[in-house]
């Protein structure tokens, strides 16, 4: 089988053609870098995405502080992960990289802060 997809690894958005048989990838063409090749392969076998959101912060400069998944998570887990993120409240100060949730939903990926908040 053949699938044509736009790569989302970077803003270039290469048009990639993947030939595959079931979950076995036979060829990847049209990509301009290694990341494109990797994207196309996982997109066929196990599509993953990174998620970015916010969590509530007590005593912060702002009511919320941004966060992200420390790595990609399975596409199917997106809304479960969002539910967990929305349960979290942290206290200021917060610094970039601080872990809010360890191993969210058993994905092996953490939810980490993506901004500093020195507090009021």
């Amino acid at each position: 089988m053949k699938k044509v997809m736009n790569c989302i690894a970077c803003p270039l958005g290469c048009l990639i053609t993947v030939e595959y048989d079931g979950s076995e990838v036979l060829s990847v063409t049209g990509n301009t870098c290694k990341r494109g090749d990797a994207y196309a392969r996982t997109e066929i076998t196990n599509p993953v995405r990174s998620i970015h959101s916010t969590v509530k912060v007590n005593g912060g400069e702002h009511p919320v502080v941004p966060c992200k998944t420390s790595g990609p998570i399975p596409k199917g887990a997106i809304f479960d992960v969002m539910k967990e993120i929305n349960k979290v409240t942290v206290d200021a100060p917060v610094s970039i990289g601080q872990v809010f949730i360890k191993d969210v939903c058993g994905t092996g990926v953490d939810i980490v802060a993506t901004n500093n908040d020195c507090g009021k």
Partner: peptide
């Protein structure tokens, strides 16, 4: 950048994918 919490920033300049606040920081 402070409100652009999605990633995709810095791929050219830092060679890694950052969120807006991280790029600004």
């Amino acid at each position: 950048l402070e409100q652009c919490i999605h990633t995709g920033f810095g791929l050219h300049y830092f060679g890694e994918e950052l969120s807006g606040p991280e790029y600004a920081a």
